[in-house]
């Protein structure tokens, strides 16, 4: 079955109510744009040289297509990413929050119950993001094929640089952790997400299809250990909170948001990634469930470090105030 058909089927399937509120890739329209480009090329060269017969645009970039195609695609991608992250956040908030906050949230949702619905929602979100990611990938591939250029690939790297690549989003990892958590409780094993925390290189694996597997390393690049109390910088790299704080030379209790905006990501050297860092609560929960010992040990260490740092900080502050 062609992907276009699959995608249409997905869009108009039983989850239509869910997708109505979300933007998605206008796969068909984008395809039409490319088709027009091809047909126009054919008209331009009716004699039909070999290359034109194949329907390929010879020019590296065709202004008409580029204008429509890429602007449209990037708009959609950013919309999808935003929608996805907000949805995931909303979902996780429901799941993670506790006590009164949770009660209030439930109250707002009219006590629609929870676990199954939430798990289902999570599954739907995963499907949503994977379908859209594949759609973007496919349409870009088609673009490259039609124009015999590498603009499509370049566009993908550009998207990744702007953190619009859906499959690189830290929220996907969060969602995966949530998925595993909820499934672990319900006992129903997920085939899409799996994670291996016991080996030297802890990874979370997302299986989209037989040929497409994504691996997310859960190793902190600074302490080379499994991330603990992990934070994802907006570039998508995961670190322990303590490690990230010391890399940004801020106190642990100050939090990552206090970091100098000029501070760079320890891995990709990108500037200003600390401000929008995301705390990976679900992942931490997963760790807590999976490796209790390690988690407790780490928690102890981090707390000791935090206390020590704050002690030093307040010592210096008081000294400063007293005029020493």
């Amino acid at each position: 079955m062609k992907f276009g058909e699959t995608f249409t089927e997905y869009l108009h399937g039983d989850q239509e109510w869910f997708l109505d509120k979300c933007s998605h890739v206008e796969y068909k329209q984008l395809k039409k744009v490319l088709k027009r480009c091809r047909s126009r090329n054919c008209k331009d060269a009716p004699a039909g040289s070999e290359s034109n017969n194949e329907g390929f645009c010879q020019c590296e970039s065709c202004p008409l297509c580029d204008q429509k195609f890429f602007s449209e695609l990037i708009k959609e991608a950013s919309e999808i990413a935003g929608c996805f992250s907000s949805r995931v956040r909303h979902l996780l908030q429901l799941h993670i929050s506790n006590g009164l906050q949770r009660y209030m949230l439930r109250l707002r949702h009219c006590f629609t119950n929870d676990k199954e619905l939430m798990a289902q929602q999570g599954r739907m979100l995963i499907e949503y993001v994977t379908m859209n990611a594949i759609a973007i990938r496919k349409i870009l591939k088609k673009y490259d094929k039609v124009h015999s250029s590498i603009n499509g690939r370049n566009f993908r790297t550009k998207m990744r640089a702007e953190h619009l690549e859906l499959l690189q989003s830290p929220w996907l990892i969060e969602l995966g952790a949530f998925y595993i958590n909820s499934n672990g409780v319900s006992g129903e094993l997920s085939d899409q997400f799996s994670c291996d925390l016991s080996s030297d290189r802890p990874v979370m694996t997302l299986t989209i299809s037989d040929s497409l597997k994504l691996e997310y390393s859960l190793t902190c690049a600074i302490c080379l250990d499994t991330v603990f109390n992990s934070y994802a910088l907006s570039c998508g790299h995961l670190f322990c909170k303590a490690c990230a704080c010391s890399a940004a030379s801020v106190m642990i209790f100050e939090g990552l948001k206090a970091a100098d905006p000029e501070t760079r990501c320890p891995v990709c050297r990108e500037v200003g990634v600390y401000a929008n860092s995301v705390r990976m609560i679900e992942l931490d929960l997963l760790l807590k469930n999976r490796c209790k010992e390690y988690w407790r040990e780490k928690l102890h260490d981090e707390r000791a470090e935090t206390v020590k740092q704050s002690k030093e900080y307040w010592d210096s502050q008081t000294k400063f105030m007293l005029g020493f």
């Binding site: 600074i222 302490c223 250990d225 303590a242 260490d301 000791a304 470090e305 020590k308």
Partner: peptide, 18 residues
């Protein structure tokens, strides 16, 4: 101490890797 311990841990990992 925590810092030193962490560094020690990391060094061990690195050497293992090396």
């Amino acid at each position: 101490m925590a810092q030193a311990a962490r560094q020690n841990l990391r060094m061990q990992k690195e050497l293992k890797l090396l």
